[in-house]
Lab assay of single mutants.
Amino acid sequence: QLRFETNGEEQAKKVLEEAKKHNLEAHVTIENGKWVVHVK
């Protein structure tokens, strides 16, 4: 499982879109005010 700390909602959405293009499972959590994308 990969973990990407992003700078906010915009970047998190871009990472999610990329993951979906590659048929990867991804979800976002907010940790300590940071948007974190988890990709399987």
Rank of each mutant, 00 (worst) to 15 (best):
Q1R: 10
Q1E: 14
Q1H: 14
Q1G: 14
Q1P: 13
Q1T: 15
Q1A: 14
L2V: 11
L2G: 07
L2P: 02
R3P: 03
R3H: 08
R3V: 10
R3Y: 06
F4E: 02
F4G: 02
F4P: 01
F4I: 15
F4L: 08
E5Q: 06
E5Y: 11
E5L: 08
T6L: 14
T6E: 04
T6M: 13
T6P: 03
N7D: 15
N7W: 12
N7L: 12
N7K: 11
N7G: 10
G8F: 12
G8P: 01
G8A: 09
G8C: 14
G8N: 15
E9Y: 14
E9H: 07
E9N: 04
E10Y: 10
E10V: 08
E10R: 05
E10H: 08
E10G: 06
Q11W: 11
Q11E: 15
Q11C: 13
Q11N: 07
Q11M: 12
A12T: 04
A12W: 04
A12K: 01
A12I: 03
A12R: 01
K13I: 12
K13M: 15
K13F: 13
K14T: 08
K14S: 09
V15N: 02
L16R: 02
L16A: 07
L16I: 12
E17A: 13
E17F: 10
E17K: 10
E18H: 14
E18F: 15
A19V: 09
A19R: 01
A19N: 01
K20M: 12
K20H: 12
K21T: 06
K21M: 10
K21N: 08
H22K: 10
H22R: 11
H22V: 05
N23C: 11
N23P: 01
N23I: 02
N23H: 12
N23G: 15
L24R: 08
E25I: 13
E25A: 11
E25N: 09
A26L: 03
A26W: 05
A26G: 06
A26N: 02
A26Y: 06
A26M: 03
A26D: 00
H27Q: 09
H27L: 08
H27K: 09
H27V: 13
V28K: 02
V28H: 02
V28M: 12
T29E: 09
T29L: 07
T29Q: 07
I30D: 03
I30C: 09
I30H: 10
E31R: 05
E31N: 04
E31V: 08
E31S: 05
E31D: 06
E31T: 05
E31P: 00
N32I: 01
N32D: 12
N32L: 05
N32Y: 06
G33W: 02
G33P: 00
K34D: 02
K34L: 11
K34Q: 09
K34R: 11
W35A: 01
W35H: 04
W35T: 02
W35K: 00
W35Y: 08
V36R: 01
V36L: 03
V36G: 01
V36A: 01
V37W: 01
V37G: 00
V37L: 02
H38C: 10
H38G: 01
H38A: 05
H38R: 07
H38F: 14
H38Y: 15
H38P: 01
K40L: 14
K40N: 14
K40S: 15
